[in-house]
Design a protein around this nucleic acid. Structure first.
Lengths: 179, 179
DNA sequence: TGATAAACGGAATCCAGGTTCCGTATCGTC
DNA sequence: GACGATACGGAACCTGGATTCCGTTTATCA
């Protein structure tokens, strides 16, 4: 088993990285992360082989949270609410945590190993929510997963790079709803 | 007046840069641009003081084209067609020419000097198209410029980073149209 | 408490890519 | 067709930032 301080520091680094990446996106510097964690850069690297690896670890964790949220909504809310809430949730997440949307960017292509199943899970979750919402006649039948992913990506990127007013989201929702 | 070869090279650089930036976005290397132009890096720098300057020159040119297009549509097409065509045109442009969307990103904030009036012109053009479309009852009255800019930004970014199916665009349009 | 392995800090190293410099080539003029 | 002024090419330089290295510190266990 790892030494106790190693465990503690790993956690600190992860937390700090989450904060810093949320604020600054992928351009955040490793020193900044180390500083925020109250640790030397060397320590960061002992726990995460590379910046990329660190960043991936965070995305993986975040997507897991989203997946759980998707399952919860699916179970507890009516299909329409579930679908639209999840959509809004992802966009809100992107607005708050910058280093995030790249995950969605990969949702179709160019996935790193280890992420593959997570991406598949995400696609499945969204498909499930969409289907249910369509069965409940809350979303147009002819809308497909590719469109949803594209809209999700667009809204998230927009939210990440600036303001994305609720009214704009509402316009998209309105376009998705049954006529 | 500048020497003839200088003039010729300036044009070549501009063309090459447009191509390379379109393909690779802002990460494109200066050597790549110089190579494509069949010129040394030094020459690129004699004409454009910095990478940023070069990139701005291109964006400015491109936005001018779009502005002309906006005016033309305004004059020649009915308001609804004009508005939606222009929207689609911007998104299509973003899909084809990567190094582009940053211009829209600035549409509200943090504008470099010299760009200010161009940004203002763009905002004015979009506002004009929007108003007209609303007067013609082709777009919901409660939609405002901020929403349009946000949606435009989102769709463009999405198109720039991957696929943005026409159906997705149609969903947005559908949400914008009068109920 | 002492020994030893595991972790740590952070200065030094490496590298990619933008920018500068200067010897050479070209243009325009007399 | 010769001269000065302009441009050119591209190697060398510089900088920011990721990554590595190693002497020092800390945890763990007899």
């Amino acid at each position: 088993m790892p030494r106790s301080d190693a465990l503690r520091n790993r956690a600190r680094v992860l937390d700090a990285a989450e904060e810093v990446l949320a604020e600054q996106g992928l351009t955040a510097r490793m020193d900044a992360i180390a500083a925020r964690a109250g640790v030397g850069v060397g320590t960061v690297y002992r726990h995460f082989a590379t910046k990329e690896a660190l960043w991936q670890a965070i995305v993986v964790a975040r997507v897991d949270v989203l997946l759980a949220e998707a399952r919860r909504l699916r179970a507890e809310a009516d299909p329409a609410t579930a679908f639209f809430t999840f959509f809004a949730r992802i966009v809100a997440d992107a607005a708050a945590k910058k280093a995030y949307t790249d995950a969605l960017r990969d949702a179709g292509i160019d996935v790193k190993d280890g992420q593959a199943e997570q991406v598949a899970a995400m696609r499945a979750a969204i498909t499930g929510l969409l289907r249910a919402a369509q069965d409940a006649h809350a979303v147009r039948a002819e809308v497909g997963l590719p469109e949803i992913l594209a809209l999700l990506r667009g809204a998230s990127l927009a939210a990440e790079t600036g303001d994305f007013p609720p009214a704009a989201l509402e316009i998209i929702f309105s376009g998705l709803r049954t006529v």
